[in-house]
Design a protein around this nucleic acid. Structure first.
Lengths: 212, 212
DNA sequence: GGTTAAGCGGAACGACGAATTCGCTTACGA
DNA sequence: TCGTAAGCGAATTCGTCGTTCCGCTTAACC
């Protein structure tokens, strides 16, 4: 995977490759900080390039957002994979959720994109399925260990993360870190001790795929 | 309170009063359905008036949004007051949260406004404090009955509602009613059985007031 | 080093929405 | 019923943003 990045950049002229790198970094910083409504001009300024230079690599703003979003999902998937291998699986699950929630909180653009149709793009669906597969292994082990109620599944985790991050963003300015409190409550809700029957069936892969 | 509305409208010419009523209803419908980003033109069209007619009553779009938002908070406060009097307080709490979450789901404009600085307006702060006071009575009784963990407070409820509603809105189009599942998980997280220590202190009134 | 085309950036375009203005309409009170 | 001021809506202004265009620059290759 890492070996493919140079291959793409090698086809570019040196200055173009340099600009692409600057654009990607600037986009990450600006979108994380200001959300997906940051203007292309803002990103271009941060990268020290003109707006047209961005459009040469990304035909539309959506394409740029998708690239950033895909990176974000991939990072989460990697975190989940690591957590699934940990010894203390209960602790690993909590830590995964904490890191993932923190990542959401530090990337407003990611949260914004998760609410759009960007998630229907095939390349993002693939990353998302990776994430789900890894989260599923983590969750299966946690259930075996009696740390998690039986009636939740891997699709619930990103949903709960978005919920917590959203509540957190509402409060972040005034009460930094408040999201941790709400993540704690949600994590307690995932434990077997308090489990009452859930009133809706769990999500399935098809629920998150394009209509049809 | 209800007696003041006619007093305001009586000072208006008959056609103006009629238009105001149509504007309020149109704004409610359009904002609920399309969120606070619905244009003034859209609301005006729905009301069957011109945009300037709205601006005569509401100097800015924010003022209109605030009026709608205030209504929404007032409705929630009333629901909380009713729930606080119910016999089976555990059931009443769950029902309050379910109704409140459903109300959030049916009013995108409300959710949008809750994320802006509109909540710092004094008239809305007053309504919100009403809501908190009522929720506090409900919660106190639920704790006595052993239905709710001791370390949550009334300020947690609107936060959790926003979290659930937000997750719900992400899924609503593809999986209608999915929010109920996530509300169930959150409600289980509020029960005493699974309670682990929360990592952040509860919110207080000052955390939600204007800076300073 | 010269040729060439890819790459560059800033200016310009078109769309859109909030807010304002203005000339016509209409409800109300004397 | 009539004069008038409040009310009305369409058109306009103003600012923002995504996207495109065009003349200049510069890296790459022989």
């Amino acid at each position: 995977m890492a070996s493919e990045v140079p291959r793409v950049e090698q086809r570019l002229r040196a200055d173009a490759a340099r600009n692409l790198a600057r654009i990607l970094e600037a986009a990450h910083v600006v979108l994380a900080e200001r959300g997906s409504e940051a203007s292309m001009a803002e990103i271009a300024a941060r990268a020290g390039v003109g707006t047209a230079t961005i459009y040469r690599r990304f035909p539309t703003k959506d394409d740029l957002l998708a690239a950033m979003f895909e990176q974000g999902v991939a990072r989460l998937a990697a975190e989940a994979a690591a957590a699934a291998e940990a010894k203390d699986v209960g602790r690993a699950l909590r830590q995964f959720m904490q890191r993932a929630a923190a990542a959401h909180m530090q990337d407003r653009g990611y949260c914004d994109c998760a609410e759009t149709n960007l998630k229907l793009r095939p390349e993002i669906q693939r990353r998302f399925e990776e994430l789900i597969a890894n989260a599923d292994r983590l969750l299966a082990r946690a259930k075996e260990a009696g740390e998690v109620r039986e009636d939740v599944n891997a699709y619930d985790l990103p949903v709960l993360l978005m919920a917590v991050a959203h509540a957190g963003l509402l409060l972040e300015e005034r009460v930094p870190g408040a999201w941790k409190r709400y993540l704690d409550i949600v994590l307690d809700g995932l434990r077997p001790e308090a489990a009452r029957p859930l009133s809706r069936r769990p999500l399935a892969a098809r629920d998150l795929r394009p209509p049809g």
